[in-house]
């Protein structure tokens, strides 16, 4: 064999297809994470800086002002305590949506990497699951840091508040997978992410009972809150954190809403990933 010849056992001997059918999503997630790690310092920096920025400016700055005007606090607690579950959910949802949508445009349109992945035994469904898994891994990392910051600043009390992390990640997953499906379905998507950021994410952030109770807003704006996974996550989060009043029925509705959104999201994303790869 010359130096440039390749050794050869052949794919028929080397490749275990059932193994790929089982683990394909993990392979995709690993590859995505490998890409993300190229920017690990900016990811780590951002994960620490974002909560600090919000806590110092809004939580403590505006909080001081709010607390001085409302002696009884907001919802019976200090403004920062009221705000904490919402800030956590908002940051986590925003991050997850970004990480679940940007690679979809890149994979289908800009670099067409999804077509390269699909030229292997890996299916469209596995690509979608893998991209989401990577996005949620980063979201989980950010969520833990954010939680630690909130705890350190005294915005959360007691270990039971650790339940905020899975609830927040659940809400983030349900919304991220839905947006990922929408991204796969949209053809002229150059402006899409900007539109999503301006007309969807920011209004959701503002009108989901994040900074003030949803009940204090006009009815037509409350509708935005009801539709938003952020509001559902915030309500459950406040219930976990400081015992904010949520009826048993409301709890069931909050979880059902997020579950249904996740089911629709997965179905939609799997369908459109498969369809777009086969075009």
């Amino acid at each position: 064999m010359s130096a440039n010849d390749l050794s050869r056992k052949g794919s028929l001997t080397l490749i275990d297809v059932p193994k790929i059918l089982r683990w394909g999503s993990i392979y995709i997630a690993q590859a995505r994470i490998r890409s993300m790690l190229k920017w690990k310092w900016s990811i780590i920096g951002e994960s620490f800086a974002t909560p600090m920025f919000y806590l110092l400016s809004i939580g403590i700055g505006i909080g001081k002002f709010v607390n001085s005007h409302q002696a009884a606090g907001v919802d019976g607690v200090k403004y920062l305590t009221f705000l904490a579950p919402a800030l956590l959910a908002a940051a986590c949802i925003q991050g997850a949506v970004g990480d679940a949508t940007f690679p979809v445009l890149e994979g289908f349109k800009w670099q067409k990497g999804f077509f390269a992945m699909n030229a292997t035994p890996i299916s469209g469904k596995q690509i979608a699951n893998g991209v989401l898994l990577a996005a949620m891994s980063r979201a989980a990392f950010g969520c833990v840091i954010y939680y630690a910051a909130l705890y350190t600043f005294g915005a959360l009390h007691g270990l039971h508040t650790l339940w905020l992390i899975p609830v927040t990640l659940f809400a983030a997953t349900s919304f991220a997978v839905l947006m990922m499906g929408v991204c796969a379905a949209i053809k002229n998507d150059d402006l899409f992410l900007n539109m999503v950021q301006r007309f969807l994410i920011v209004p959701l952030f503002l009108f989901s009972g994040t900074f003030y109770s949803l009940a204090s807003m006009p009815k037509f704006l409350q509708i935005i809150g009801w539709a938003s996974p952020l509001w559902h996550a915030t309500e459950v989060g406040r219930w976990i954190s400081y015992g904010h009043h949520v009826s048993a029925t409301a709890l069931v509705i909050h979880f059902s809403y997020m579950t249904i959104m996740a089911i629709i999201g997965f179905t939609f994303a799997h369908h459109h990933f498969t369809k777009r790869l086969a075009k």
Partner: peptide
């Protein structure tokens, strides 16, 4: 490397 992993190698 990444592509090889997609084949489960």
């Amino acid at each position: 490397y990444v592509y090889g992993r997609y084949f489960g190698l």
